[in-house]
Design a protein around this nucleic acid. Structure first.
Length: 928
RNA sequence: GCCCGAGUGGUGGAAUUGGUAGACACGCAGGACUUAAAAUCCUGUGACCAUUGCGGUCGUGCGGGUUCAAGUCCCGCCUCGGGUACCA
């Protein structure tokens, strides 16, 4: 066997391991580079061929940077807490730690076979107490800090306490759950418990009664980003709204900084856009509407204060606390019925039923502060309690939802904006609200005749001046619910005294996850930790029963990799100052609104504390595309055990059935393997075409049930890790989603064998010439150096592989076996196919690893052409090619073309209007 | 609905700033070597017309436009993928 990938891959993997080739340490004499893959959750199914796509890309880049003299940090670890292991524990009674351990081992085996250059000494696991100690530590810090809006950073809570003691809330501008106001005397008069309750209103990690997404099937609450389309992202179970006392992180305090920070990071526009939408900044005004015959005031948020003359009713969210205060006696029953009805609707029903208009009149009236008009106050679930103030001014003429509501309940509609090029019309004739982004104001008193932007500005001035409102910026981003009623997660370092939460002393960390007899809630409905024996502090205070969510452990793991063994700190100063931040982060786009927001928040908080030197954790981020499955089908003739080949199926009545893609090659079914696949196919019969059974195919999600899962281990054992690596890259651009189709893999495998043969004679002996390279050979090499270097830098790995193929094809044609050429070629190949490169490098006589070889530089002198093959076009259509000296000037080129025999046919009977010559590119002659 | 992204041969894809559309592979067809197979190598391969040779016409989702020249830029649509959605 000539290229024995199996033998040499095992050999070099153990060489790298035994010689600590991938170990990195802080080394200020060299520039650092930090390449990170998104933390994988080790699932029971193991890796399929889609998972390593990003890992291969990041590994190529890491190795490339190392060859260019960088000290590269390239770690890997596991996001080991999670629901699947716990669900499995509930079913089987097996401790989730055992399941997790098993899965981690399997992941590691699979990863090792692909030849990644991870420094495994830095591996972290979120469920390891040495690791989650620092998750708990960070939580304590958040509890002990609040966010100062003036200084735009987190400050110690003691500072706030001091302010309260001296001046009360006077001058305090802090992020809080609800604005409070008290004097120093009032503060001092409060009990310890009352003071603690007030501080929770400011802490960055706080306990509050809040509406949560409760998932009964999973027995836990979920964060907003864990709910998709009203069902849980994991498992797809229904989710309902429920009021519960929960831990939250005040992520919303950092909204503006999270938004601003995106201007200085190199992420894709689409990903930044997703985050911007999720943060949802909107600039508008808060306005106060007095309620008639009462001292109740309604505060509303609007982005269109200019349309205030078009307000014909007000709407409160059903959960708003003003509902009680505004509802009149005679409407009380109707309102209560409505509240009862809305409460029963689950989140899912509400979402699937968006068009249904519902609501009830409260009986109360508000006064429009600009017109002094009385306007009815309604209650409807189309207004959300969680956004703005939970109350709106309705402008039915210019808002779709308000319009639908007004029509349904027969409320008046007043037009206040005339869109450009239109006339005012009777709103009774409208089918829908009118767009009001641009136009002229009408029916608007002092705003009449103004353009929309002018009117907005004028209204803001007016309400500010009159003290009836204020300019305000609102964010859609909610605080993150941080409690989970589950077992398999980090325990909170929290105990309760007099119903108030207190933090454990840092010296007590880590607070380790206790054993429980079952992984289910207790009979009284408490979370699983309620089953733990002696789950209390030494003093006898009971400990928190909730655990932390999945994103807790993944929010600062990139920092821990910098200094994973540190017992004194999450990350040591020296390590953090050296490694700074992640230079390149590769992972899927599915974390756009979860992990990538939370870890940025977490990092900014640590930055405020002075724990880390960088404000943003991930400098450049690339989203690799998903690898979809490519399913194969056989066609069973209905009612028989007979299967008909793809192109003959139209003559029969057939049912397509998924067939395991691993027994199909180039869409041709291995009939014997099919018969042995499942008992029901043992005596299957086939109708063949050209003696073959051809399968149909389709692109679908890669999943067990579709029998289209391809395992990287199988590819490695059939073709080798180097082939797998090259092929995953060759499939297409990294960012693009594409189906996995093993069909093309022969091409890259053949390429590696061809490359091998450049170095060896027919007897497979190394055969290298020390002669000087010819210009042709140098040109082939330097073209490849240039293309591959530039393409790695712009993450275009698929075109790198083509460049390799072209180079090896050319060198094969030139029968080149010169050291001068081949040594550089091996180095270029090392990031992509490290095993074969290491083998050839050693066969070339080197005794140290190819991982530290110098990256070749391309030389312009080797690339210059003496002649250029010009495409000659007439009226833009290429007609023939013409070889001309590269240094020929325009005039001579024109002369040469005009006199050329091939031109005459196109010039005949025509006049030349114009001749365009772009030197070294193209010649175009315009004739008429 | 709104916001992104993408549509190129039978397939994956290439064409970096407007300059030879289809690189590089897969597949397919034919051939060489071989008792045979595997492996390897060679030739052809966008469509249509012509095929005795040359050759010609069309062609990057659709319809327009700018330009000597458009896959690439502009305008209007269509389809697919992703995100988000009573967010005032």
């Amino acid at each position: 066997m000539e290229y024995n990938f199996k033998e040499l891959e095992e050999k070099w993997q153990s060489y790298w391991r035994d010689n600590n080739i991938n170990k990195v340490t802080v080394d200020p004499s060299r520039p650092k580079f930090y390449v990170l893959d998104m933390f994988p959750y080790p699932s029971g199914a193991g890796l399929h061929v889609g998972h390593p796509l990003g890992y291969i890309a990041s590994d190529i880049y890491s190795r490339f940077k190392r060859l260019n003299g960088f000290n590269v940090l390239h770690p890997m670890g596991y996001d080991a807490y999670g629901l699947p292991a716990e669900q499995y524990a509930i079913q089987t009674g097996q401790h989730p730690a055992i399941t997790t351990d098993k899965n981690v081992k399997r992941y590691r085996e699979q990863l090792d076979k692909i030849g990644f250059s991870y420094d495994w000494d830095r591996e972290v696991k979120t469920c390891d107490p040495h690791y989650y100690k620092w998750t708990q530590w960070a939580f304590i810090q958040m509890f002990n800090h609040y966010y100062c809006n003036d200084e735009k950073q987190a400050r110690p809570i003691e500072e706030l306490v001091k302010t309260f003691e001296t001046v009360g809330t006077e001058g305090v501008n802090a992020s809080c759950t609800e604005p409070l106001s008290f004097t120093a005397e009032e503060w001092k008069a409060k009990s310890e418990k009352e003071q603690q309750a007030i501080l929770l209103n400011y802490r960055l990690a706080y306990l509050a009664d809040t509406m949560v997404n409760w998932c009964p099937a999973l027995g836990t609450v979920l964060a907003n980003d864990e709910v998709k389309d009203g069902v849980s992202e994991r498992g797809g179970h229904p989710v309902e709204q429920k009021l519960m006392r929960q831990w939250l992180l005040r992520v919303s305090a950092y909204s503006e900084r999270l938004l601003e920070g995106m201007n200085k990071i190199d992420w894709t526009d689409s990903l930044k856009e997703i985050q911007r939408n999720w943060i949802g900044r909107s600039e508008g005004a808060e306005m106060i509407f007095k309620v008639k015959d009462s001292d109740v005031e309604m505060k509303i948020f609007t982005t269109r204060a200019d349309t205030v003359f078009g307000v014909t009713f007000m709407v409160l969210a059903p959960e708003s606390e003003l509902v009680d205060q505004i509802t009149t006696a005679d409407q009380k029953e109707a309102v209560e019925n409505y509240l009862e009805e809305t409460k029963k609707r689950t989140e899912r029903e509400r979402l699937s039923d968006v068009k249904r208009v519902s609501g009830v009149f409260s009986g109360g009236y508000a006064i429009n502060p600009l017109t002094n008009q009385e306007i009815p106050v309604w209650i409807s679930d189309y207004v959300l309690a969680g956004y703005g103030t939970g109350a709106i001014m309705a402008v039915p003429a210019h808002d779709t939802r308000d319009f639908a509501f007004a029509r349904h309940f027969n409320l008046p509609i007043t037009q206040v904006v005339i869109p450009e090029g239109e006339e005012a019309t009777d709103t009774a004739t409208w089918d829908d609200s009118k767009d009001s982004k641009a136009g002229t104001m009408v029916n608007s008193g002092l705003l009449d005749g103004l353009s929309v932007p002018d009117a907005i500005a004028k209204t803001k001035e007016y309400i500010k001046g009159k003290g009836i409102g204020a300019v305000k910026v609102n964010y859609r981003l909610r605080d993150a619910i941080f409690s989970r009623q589950r077992y398999w997660g980090e325990p909170f370092p929290v105990y309760y005294k007099d119903d108030m939460p207190y933090m454990l002393d840092e010296s007590k960390l880590p607070l380790e996850l206790p054993e429980v007899d079952k992984y289910l809630p207790t009979e009284s409905g408490e979370p699983p930790l309620g089953r733990a024996k002696d789950w209390k502090t030494e003093e006898g205070y009971s400990l928190e029963l909730n655990t932390m969510p999945g994103f807790a452990g993944s929010s600062a793991y990139y920092l821990r990799y910098m200094d994973p063994q540190n017992k004194e700190a999450l990350v040591g100063k020296e390590s953090n100052e050296y490694w700074q931040d992640v230079d390149l982060y590769i992972g899927g786009t599915e974390h756009a609104t979860g992990h990538l927001i939370y870890s940025r928040f977490w990092n900014k908080f640590l930055y405020d504390l002075g724990v880390v030197v960088k404000d943003e954790p991930f400098r450049k981020l690339i989203n690799q595309g998903m690898i979809q499955g490519r399913s194969n089908f056989v066609y069973r003739i209905n009612g028989t055990n007979q299967y008909v080949s793809l192109n003959l199926k139209k003559d029969y009545d057939v049912t397509p059935l998924h067939v395991d893609v691993n027994i199909v090659r180039n869409d041709i079914l291995d009939i014997e393997a099919f018969r042995n696949w499942m008992p029901e196919y043992n005596d299957a019969e086939f109708i063949l075409e050209d003696g073959k059974y051809i399968c149909g195919w389709a692109v679908e999600k890669m999943s067990k049930s579709k029998y289209n899962v391809v395992n990287p281990d199988d590819i490695v054992s059939n073709f080798g890790a180097d082939t797998l690596r090259l092929y995953e890259m060759f499939l297409g651009p990294l960012e693009q989603s594409k189906p996995w189709d093993t069909n093309g893999i022969d091409g890259v495998h053949k390429f590696l064998r061809k490359a091998w043969r450049l170095f060896h004679d027919r007897e497979n002996n190394i055969n290298i010439s020390e002669d000087k390279a010819t210009p042709e050979e140098l040109k082939a090499l330097h073209t490849a150096i240039k293309k591959i270097t530039e393409n790695i830098e712009r993450f275009s790995f698929n075109t790198c592989v083509s460049a390799f193929m072209i180079c090896v094809n050319e060198l094969t044609d030139l029968k080149c076996n010169k050291r001068e050429i081949l040594e550089a070629l091996v180095t270029l190949l090392a990031p992509f196919a490290p095993h074969i490169a290491e083998e050839l490098w050693h066969q070339l006589g080197h005794t140290t690893t190819v991982c530290d070889a110098p990256w070749p530089k391309w030389e312009a002198a080797c690339l210059v052409e003496s002649t250029i093959t010009y495409p000659v076009s007439f009226n833009g259509k290429m007609r023939f090619k013409l070889d001309l000296p590269a240094d020929m000037n325009k005039a001579d080129i024109e002369k040469a073309v005009m006199e050329n025999e091939a031109s005459q046919k196109w010039l005949e009977g025509k006049t030349v209007k114009k001749v365009i010559i772009v030197p070294k590119k193209i010649i175009n002659i315009v004739v008429g």
